[in-house]
Amino acid sequence: MSERTRRIVFVVAALGVAAILLWALAGLPSFGSHESAYARLLNSTTAKRRHVTDVVTATVFDYRGVDTFGEELLLFAAVVGATLLLREQREELHEPPSDQGLGRVAVSMSSAVRLVGVAIIGPAFVFGLSIVAHGHLSPGGGFQGGVVLASVALIAYLVGEYRTLERSAPFAVAELSEGTGAAGYAVMGTLGLIGGAAFLQNVLPLGQLGTLASGGTILFGDVTVGLAVTGALVALFHEFLHQTLVVRRARAKRGSR
């Protein structure tokens, strides 16, 4: 199919989809005026029923915990897929990591960037942990804290070099964290089964509203998802950095290509 034909087919299909989409959007209530009954119910009763003040995190880990289970396994599968795609190939060489590549000029790191980076790593790490831990009390949770912690690993690479990242957040630790997080969420679900209730039901003691130890399995969910997301993103960074800095194509082609 030539490029022109592709565009024409796209325009025809887009017009069809646009017609249906406009019909659907016209049926929606006007912006900012509608409140769904489910949302109103959750907003008003979560503090009483689950002793947490963060409705979003309670929804993610308790009311809609199965959806999060599926998403977390999706995350796991995507990282496994990327690791599989970027695995060692026979005709590739591994050399010591260097920023200088063929046709690529290494930019020397300015001391200002290095200073700010080093100063910010510690506070950012604690901040990420705090977001994970206080997920059920204020805006935050496993997913947000996980990405913040992964960005701390990125800052570590930025102010140092690849070896800094290899030593402070090695690939093995990232994979371990990711697997523990994914399996931990499944274990949390079976706690419900052991407790005589449904899978992923909140069976741990609920504690007192407003304290860290509240919400039952919600805090457990925050921690496992935080581990999983941090491990997943750090593993992805390792994979791509490894490809760029360490892997080189072999000079002599072996076999017929």
Binding site: R104, A150, L154, F240
Partner: peptide, 15 residues
């Protein structure tokens, strides 16, 4: 995260 991965992929392909 995503722009960083994009830049790494481009650097790998270019280098």
């Amino acid at each position: 995260a995503i722009p960083m991965i994009v830049l790494l992929v481009l650097a790998r392909a270019h280098g």
